[in-house]
Nucleic acid binder design. Structure first.
Length: 616
DNA sequence: TAGAGAGGCACC
DNA sequence: AAACGGTGCCTCTCTA
């Protein structure tokens, strides 16, 4: 017993020095200060004050489900740093640490974080700091990285994750070691990597190193990336625009979407029954596992079925098309069993598993993800891939009691963007007079409307006659005629596509109207036109979100899905609000309107489709 | 046992 | 001259 502390007070541990972890980046040492006792906060506060102009930060949490703050989710560490020094604060260890972090976040004039919207969710859920307070002063290195180069690692780009960017822009060794440190801890604790976050001891060296390096790396990335963001992106205001958008989609995430649990459970059970029935049928026909292609191939070849279609890698293909064509009880059983299993797992089980205490589920909205900056929506609601044809899945999602779902989508967005930016008079005229563009293309080629429609879309995708044959089931001759006619009928589009390809070939990039630079691969120059169309369309939807936010309508937005926004409006104001918001969403591009049509449904998202279907 | 690759399928 | 663009998720299989 030291200090004679037997007088009702805990023994005083006198610390003269804060714990530090030194680590080299390319031979240059950086220092991580580990706050363990309240006395260590003195040094922390001095550091924050000395660096308040610009501070990088990050949080370590028990998981990724920030919406479950009342169900066990919590922040464990919060880290702040500059390019060579960081402080790690154990927020889970007591009020004093939490208060210090709250003060630091409020005191900083500028905050840098990688994928910072996540930390804003955590700051709000765990520290009670409204997202709106921190968002305006936050820089996100993920957004900057996207503006510099949006390509994923598998596309030979730098990637967008902190570890990938560290490897590409800072140091390969550091990236590997920092990433490896958490994997090593998982191994040490004998748990899966995803399970390590709530379990790792708060004073674990590897954990503290991992945590402390994050703000240092984010700070360095910020310094590197901001000078590499294209001048045009700065000039057009794209950088701050993307940050505003990210905060709006974070607000949409925060709102979440009400899940009809009863319905979802009923459908999951229904699909489970179907799955069992069809799997049994497949088993009777000799296939134990309907997802094992090797088994399917053996079974079919054993029955003398010739399988000729090949996969991309040259293996035997047994996809839906092949199985349907075979058309025997076995293939029918496989198709149905696979479908029931996949639908149950992907849509219903996933949504049910992530419902929170208020009955809501949250999509994870990545506001700026694809090469073209298209958003991606993943997690509990894979909104972009919900079956479009029927309302089976969409009935899961409900407007609030007393509200109705409204779906507002842009009409012919991509083709109108093409018409407007190419300036092609025939195409613009067709849209302005409400003519049938698909029929115009078809008539010019002397082919069926289906071939004309297929050609219009496929050309936007950078495709040729083969793709039209594949996807629209028209003859080779018709497809070839239609493609030829397309370029002759819309010479403005031809000039526009050629100009983009020249730019791409010369510089490796194209620029869009918002000042975004998109890399185009040398061996896929033809993709330039599609990149322009897709990215510009994305920016029009993004602009709509920003304008709606400016007018105070974000609280009604449930999801953005490419060319569509889903709203929940109070029933008695639905007509008025859907009209107002549709007019805000609409945009006139170079004299051509991109129109918006609002469909008012009942309470569920699915009801919008049902009402629409009953009209026709 | 995790991760990666591949196949397949849901969409705009 | 022609060239199908962009995603996420589930499952199986092989490898380290």
């Amino acid at each position: 017993m030291r200090g004679g502390g037997r007088c009702g007070r805990p023994p005083r541990v006198r610390r003269t020095r804060i714990r530090v972890i030194d680590y080299p980046i390319k031979g240059q040492p950086v220092r991580i200060h580990v706050v363990e006792a309240e006395a260590d906060l003195i040094g922390f506060r001095s550091f924050i004050l000395a660096n308040q102009q610009l501070l990088a930060h990050d949080s370590e949490t028990t998981g990724l489900d920030w919406w479950n703050a009342r169900r066990g989710f919590r922040a464990r560490l919060w880290q702040f740093g500059n390019d060579r020094e960081a402080f790690v604060v154990p927020v889970e260890s007591g009020q004093a640490f939490e208060d210090a972090v709250r003060w630091a976040l409020k005191t900083a004039h500028r905050l840098i974080a990688h994928n910072g919207t996540y930390d804003l969710h955590v700051a709000e859920a765990c520290l009670g700091i409204p997202m709106e307070e921190l968002a305006p002063k936050s820089w996100d290195t993920k957004l900057l990285a996207h503006l510099v180069d949006p390509r994923a690692v598998k596309e030979s780009g730098p990637g967008l994750k902190l570890e990938e960017l560290t490897k590409h822009y800072i140091c390969e060794v550091v990236a590997a070691e920092v990433k490896g440190s958490m994997a090593a801890i998982a191994k040490e604790l004998a748990v899966k990597k995803d399970e390590v976050w709530p379990l790792v001891p708060i004073d674990h060296h590897g954990y503290l190193l991992y945590a402390g390096m994050d703000p240092i790396l984010a700070f360095r990335l910020y310094m590197i990336l901001k000078s590499r963001v294209p001048v045009r992106s700065w000039k057009r205001g794209l950088v701050s625009w993307e940050h505003r958008l990210a905060h709006i989609t974070a607000k949409i995430e925060r709102t979440g979407y009400l899940l009809d649990r009863e319905y979802a459970e009923a459908k999951a059970a229904e699909l489970a029954r179907q799955q069992v029935t069809w799997e049994e049928a497949a088993r009777r026909e000799g296939v134990d596992n309907v997802n094992a292609n090797a088994q399917i191939i053996t079974a079919l070849q054993g029955r003398g079925v010739k399988l000729t279609k090949k996969t991309k890698k040259g293996n035997i293909c047994v996809d839906d098309e092949v199985l349907s064509a075979v058309g025997i009880p076995l293939t029918e059983a496989i198709i149905q069993a696979k479908k029931a299993k996949k639908w149950k797992a992907t849509w219903f089980d996933r949504a049910l598993a992530s419902q929170d205490a208020e009955g809501r589920v949250r999509a994870s909205i990545n506001s700026c993800q694809a090469r073209t900056a298209r958003m991606t929506i993943s997690g509990a609601i894979a909104a972009q891939t919900l079956p479009a044809g029927d309302s089976y899945v969409r009935h899961c999602f409900l407007a609030e009691p007393g509200h109705v779902t409204v779906s507002s989508d842009y009409g012919n967005m991509e083709l109108r963007v093409l018409a407007a930016f190419s300036g092609d008079p025939t195409m613009i005229d067709a849209f302005q007079r409400g003519l049938d563009l698909h029929q115009i293309t078809a008539d010019a080629a002397g082919v069926a409307r289906k071939a004309g429609k297929g050609t219009n879309f496929t050309v936007c995708f950078g495709g040729g006659w083969r793709a039209i044959v594949e996807q629209y089931g028209v003859s080779e001759a018709e497809a070839k005629k239609a493609v030829k006619a397309f370029w002759e009928t819309y010479p403005g589009v031809k000039r526009f596509a050629d100009r983009l390809q020249r730019e791409a070939r010369r510089t490796g990039y194209i620029y869009t109207g918002t000042g975004r630079r998109i890399p185009v691969d040398r061996d896929r120059i033809y993709a330039a036109l599609n990149y322009f169309i897709q990215s510009t369309s994305r920016d029009i939807t993004a602009r709509a979100l920003i304008e709606l936010d400016r007018h105070g309508y974000t609280e009604f937005v449930r999801l953005p899905i490419h060319d569509e926004l889903v709203f929940s409006f109070p029933r008695e104001r639905a007509t008025e609000l859907s009209e107002t918001t549709a007019r805000i969403m609409e945009m006139t591009v170079r004299g051509l309107l991109i129109p918006v049509d609002a469909e008012i449904g009942e309470q569920s998202w699915g009801s919008v489709l049902d009402l629409e279907a009953s009209k026709h």
